[in-house]
Design a binder for these strands. Structure first.
Lengths: 188, 188
DNA sequence: TGTATTCTACCTATCGATAGGTAGACAATT
DNA sequence: AATTGTCTACCTATCGATAGGTAGAATACA
């Protein structure tokens, strides 16, 4: 049955795509079922409620992102920051969709608390990674700069998305390293 | 019959609140109708389709924001920037909801093109205001900095919203002026 | 002025489509 | 035989949207 992936993973992938393109309320069991070639009742077998599916979506996304973060060597500050920023751009251009947590964060006020906790954890993971990078290079406790960079990149994805204009994201992506360099007080 | 506001404006206000709390797909004619005390068919009388209502929402929001932007005196750079940032924080704390264009931007890939054009126009209006402010004080063509600041503030609203933690927004709000100051200080 | 007409702002009732979710049969694997 | 996965068939609730009607205010005409 599973061609390439087990059904559970196929469902998660299809649901993620739908959420990242239109939001959580706009993703339906029927659409996802059709995407993977089964009936909606069978999706309920794997994920009893929509919230279950939403949490699985977040777990999968966060773990994938964590793996890519941990794969970035932190020994060169400038290079590491560039690769970090590239992660955000990759999601935009490869998946032609916005960051899962950008849309789930925007819709947070209407979502279950458990999903919001995971969304928050995603942003924290990203900011903590930056804070650790800065600390590694002699800049302790630059937490505000970290949060600001994560915010700028997530915001840039949204601004670019509404315009279908990727260059808007790239302008922010190019500005963030300049800002970081000046804030940390030395040329890279 | 109109208590305080004409019905059309009451509908727009109610619909805006719903969209800013849960997203465009999650806003329904029935809920809005109940909010203002009429039937859903009567909402269709004022706004034939959901897209019509969505565009009216954006028009109203953008004009309100434009008025507040134009009310900020630009003769003092630091004071003007502070007031600009305060506009974003006001939306968060007063309405206890995120920026309308933050959520419509996040959901853009699943929305009608005409709505996306208006959402884009909102971001442009904000970035253009900042660019004009910087130009007024001798820093020409700082468009990338402007877009980055708008992105950071919109992103901060989203990050803070998922955490129900307003201090996260305030950290970014405090960092943005420092960044602007250093960037403009280094400008040619 | 009085009458006829149109417009405004709602109503009830209903449409087909779709939402999330459930029960139980069926087939395959172990 | 038991478990796993998917199916058909169905549920209730709700979606956006439409049809057709109505009371009252405004407008046009004699």
């Amino acid at each position: 049955m599973p061609q390439g992936l087990p059904m559970r993973e196929k469902i998660i992938a299809a649901a993620e795509k739908r959420v990242r393109n239109a939001g959580f309320p706009a993703m339906s069991f029927r659409d996802v079922a059709q995407d993977v070639g089964i009936k909606s009742a069978s999706v309920h077998y794997h994920f009893p409620t929509k919230e279950d599916l939403g949490e699985a979506l977040l777990d999968s996304y966060i773990e994938r992102f964590r793996a890519r973060l941990e794969a970035i060597p932190q020994d060169n500050l400038k290079a590491a920051l560039d690769q970090f920023i590239e992660l955000y751009g990759d999601g935009l251009v490869m998946d032609e969709a916005i960051c899962l947590c950008a849309i789930l964060g925007a819709e947070a006020l209407g979502l279950p608390a458990d999903m919001n906790r995971k969304t928050r954890a995603f942003f924290e993971m990203n900011a903590d990674w930056l804070t650790a990078l800065f600390a590694r290079h002699g800049h302790e406790e630059e937490t505000d700069l970290s949060i600001t960079i994560v915010s700028a990149l997530e915001g840039a994805i949204i601004v670019a998305s509404s315009s279908s204009d990727r260059t808007l994201f790239e302008k922010v992506a190019a500005t963030v390293p300049l800002i970081a360099g000046r804030t940390l007080g030395h040329a890279p």
